[in-house]
């Protein structure tokens, strides 16, 4: 079975204008490679910050002399909150024991201490999705209003720094992807525009012979799609090479790189993305054909 005619023309043109097309493919590949690496970095950053909630806890301190029934009541009401995963009651004696165990090499600190200075407290662990600056602050404010609660500690600055770092990196990533995608569309646009101008006479003849707009457009769109997809495929090779050569080698020398994840599934659509951008660029370049 032979290829449909517009496809044949598109492929022929691809080889006839091989240098300009090759240059476009390499430019698109470079752009998509940067996009791929950005996604790779963002993905790993996201994974790293997602692990934080497992380690995050909020401490709630009680006033001296608070009754156990009152504490139990507060525990029950806290557990009812959907943002709360678990609540652990730490009596002041246990808190002192834990402190002493932690500072066992500096036990002189506790010499002469007649009274336990630590209050009864609760260690609250939150649901993963609730660990955001706003949600945590809301919960802390609510807890502070409870009778018998003297203080709430949750590492406010650390939490908001991580949060804004994550949001900031995501924003930078999205802007970068948007700029590079626009750049790729522009590369395809320019390439197809040049090829279109080179074939102006041929296209005029096609029109006079009765060719429809789609008959004229199709080979260019196919060419744009192949250029974009080829660029995407090259970038895919580039990103796998980047991972195996750069990251794998670095992990030998720097152990932290061993924790770096490579989401191969996330990169497989790169040729499809290239193809889509290629078609978009070609479509814009062709504009409205007039008869």
């Amino acid at each position: 079975m032979s290829l449909p005619y517009p496809f044949k023309i598109g492929v022929q043109s691809l080889f006839r204008e091989k240098w300009i097309n090759l240059l476009s493919i390499l430019t698109i590949a470079a752009g998509l490679l940067i996009i791929g690496i950005s996604v790779f970095v963002l993905y790993n950053l996201d994974i790293a910050t997602k692990k934080l909630p497992e380690k995050f806890s909020m401490m709630l301190y009680f006033n001296d002399g608070i009754q156990k029934e009152k504490i139990d009541h507060i525990i029950v009401s806290l557990k009812r909150n959907s943002a709360v995963n678990s609540v652990r009651y730490i009596p002041r004696e246990e808190a002192l024991r834990e402190l002493k165990a932690t500072l066992k090499n500096s036990n002189y600190i506790f010499e002469g201490l007649e009274e336990n200075p630590l209050p009864d407290s609760l260690e609250i662990r939150l649901e993963k999705e609730a660990v955001g600056p706003e949600a945590v602050k809301k919960l802390a404010d609510e807890a502070l209003k409870l009778k018998g609660v003297s203080d709430v500690d949750y590492g406010e600055k650390f939490l908001s720094t991580i949060h804004y770092l994550k949001v900031g990196m995501k924003a930078v990533g999205i802007v970068l992807i948007a700029i590079l995608s626009t750049g790729i569309i522009f590369v395809c646009y320019s390439t197809i525009k040049i090829l279109f101008y080179r074939k102006t006479e041929e296209i005029e003849t096609f029109k006079l012979l009765g060719a429809t707009r789609w008959f004229i457009r199709a080979p260019f769109l196919i060419e744009g799609a192949i250029i974009g997809a080829s660029g995407g495929f090259l970038s895919l090779i580039g990103i796998f090479t980047f991972y195996y050569i750069v990251v794998m080698r670095l992990s030998v020398a720097i152990p932290i790189f061993k924790t770096v994840l490579f989401p191969a599934d996330l990169f497989l659509p790169l040729p499809v993305m290239g193809m889509f951008l290629g078609i978009t660029g070609a479509f814009i370049a062709l504009g409205r054909l007039r008869y």
Partner: peptide, 24 residues
Amino acid sequence: KESSIPFLRRNIGIVFQDFRLLAN
């Protein structure tokens, strides 16, 4: 309509003065 022009032209065979042959 502009989109119908190709279909009108398909009824017509044209021998152009300047040939309009595709060189390649």
